[in-house]
Design a protein around this nucleic acid. Structure first.
Lengths: 190, 190
DNA sequence: ATAAGGTGTAAACGCGTGTTTACTTTCCCT
DNA sequence: AGGGAAAGTAAACACGCGTTTACACCTTAT
């Protein structure tokens, strides 16, 4: 039973172009301000095909909206370097050329509850929980995870979504050192 | 030249009802998802009057969208209690029955850049700067203010906008103590 | 060759929006 | 009392949206 590439279709190229355009535009301007006609133009294709291939705008967004922190990368850090490691990892995710803007789009969508807010909120909550469980912080006070979440969410919001000048201008190493120290203090607390 | 109440108009009652309805609805569901017809119905008035009195939907929003942290309330705290005081004050603002939801609306609007994003962003930045200058933190490292901003923004986002369950469930006193300690450490750093 | 079905296009549908227009009603001032 | 402006109303306008429909094109299998 060899079925490596399940169903190769002649329209796969177009489908891909639509996905790419959708990712880019949703990331750049959020769900509400992105129109299907825009996506179609960017993909150089007819708007009706977007609907035909993906059913609806919301379904297309769901295809593009995946949220993964991939925090396992920090798993093998010594406990006393976890704070700094987490901050460095999170900043790396935000500054990734493709995934960074996509993250911002997810965050915007979750916050403005433009589309199925609950779904994204669940992904958020679930990712955070998975993160802290996999880091072995479950034996800490139950407050540890949520508190770290507030600090890291705030960093992402201020520096990468709102792009507040005062926060953007902070040198990377200052952020890593200072917020890393704070996150570490949440871990060590209690 | 007595002109205490400049121009008392017969329509002031209607104008007020419109403002109230707009505040409530913008706060509850954000700018994009609130329609003029909705506001008009809530104010028990004709939709065209909303435009006549306030020019446009965006202008109406601008009339309602005021952002004040009123952080002067924390001015006379001893320096070593500033962290906890700030957190307590910020949480009080978020939990205020009327102004809390309005704050959430402003934040949503700023983040989803639904309307004149720059204006709200400027208000945000300006309020933060005013806050830290009036607290006499300008002699600190220039990183102090922005770092505190990330933590306080993150708290507001997680607990009052996204309402992440794990963060909502934290007891108030835990939040005040833990995040207060962190903010204090930003103040004391360097 | 031809029927069939996947691929693509152009145009329209139906709807909700912010806003404008034309009109009627209400109130106040002389 | 009556004239005129302010306040209020009902209906339509113009637009953009997601989505649907009707139709042409192309490739492939029989």
């Amino acid at each position: 039973m060899i079925e490596k590439t399940a169903t190769p279709r002649r329209s796969d190229a177009s489908r891909m172009r639509i996905l790419e355009a959708a990712r880019t535009l949703f990331a750049r301007q959020g769900y509400g301000r992105t129109t299907i006609r825009e996506i179609a133009e960017a993909a150089d294709i007819n708007p009706s095909l977007v609907i035909r291939y993906y059913g609806s705008k919301a379904a297309l967004f769901a295809n593009v909206a995946t949220l993964r922190f991939e925090a396992e990368a920090t798993l093998n850090l010594p406990r006393d370097k976890l704070g700094e490691g987490l901050v460095r990892h999170v900043m790396g995710r935000w500054e990734h050329p493709q995934q960074g803007p996509a993250l911002a789009a997810m965050m915007r969508a979750a916050i403005s509850s433009e589309t199925a807010q609950s779904r994204i909120n669940e992904m958020f909550a679930q990712q955070l929980q998975a993160l802290f469980q996999s880091l072995g912080l479950s034996d800490q006070s139950p407050a540890t995870g949520p508190l770290i979440a507030t600090q890291l969410l705030g960093l992402g919001l201020a520096r990468y979504v709102l792009k507040l000048p005062a926060v953007v201008e902070l040198p990377t190493e200052t952020v890593v050192a200072q917020i890393g120290r704070v996150v570490q203090s949440y871990i060590d607390a209690q």
